[in-house]
């Protein structure tokens, strides 16, 4: 039992230290962490604009609709766009690579 557990841990360690796995993780971090920071910054920017640039936010675009309202509704739209970007990236970039890694490990393990 304990022997099995050790070899098993070794396999995991091996995979974790492998170049492919490191690359996969770096790719994920390079995309996801900046994306998260960017979209949080965008929400916080809106709050700042509302406070310190009321003239800009109050600028009438069409009838009673001002910039603030447009940007406010834009927050929902942008949330949707961000989620879509992430989903597309994961479908096209991340999943195929993860699957390829999976296949290689499977092969090596046989």
């Amino acid at each position: 039992m304990s022997n099995d557990a050790r070899t098993d841990d070794d396999v995991y360690l091996g995979l974790q230290q492998s170049e492919e796995f490191a690359e996969l993780r770096t790719r994920f971090r390079r995309f996801v962490f900046p994306l998260t920071a960017l979209f949080l910054a965008w929400y916080f920017l809106y709050v700042l604009l509302s406070t310190y640039a009321p003239g800009f936010m109050g600028h009438k675009v069409l009838g009673n609709v001002n910039v603030g309202l447009v940007l406010g509704l834009g927050q929902f739209v942008s949330t949707f766009v961000i989620t879509m970007l992430y989903a597309r990236w994961a479908d096209r970039e991340f999943d195929p690579r993860a699957a390829a890694l999976h296949a290689r490990v499977e092969e090596a393990h046989r």
Binding site: V11, Y12, L24, H102
Partner: peptide
């Protein structure tokens, strides 16, 4: 103790070979 193992499990597709370990 098993952090390395857990982390690989958390970050690779779920049908990975190591599931059988």
């Amino acid at each position: 103790r098993h952090t390395a193992r857990t982390m690989v499990r958390l970050h690779t597709p779920e049908d990975l070979v190591l599931e059988r370990g």
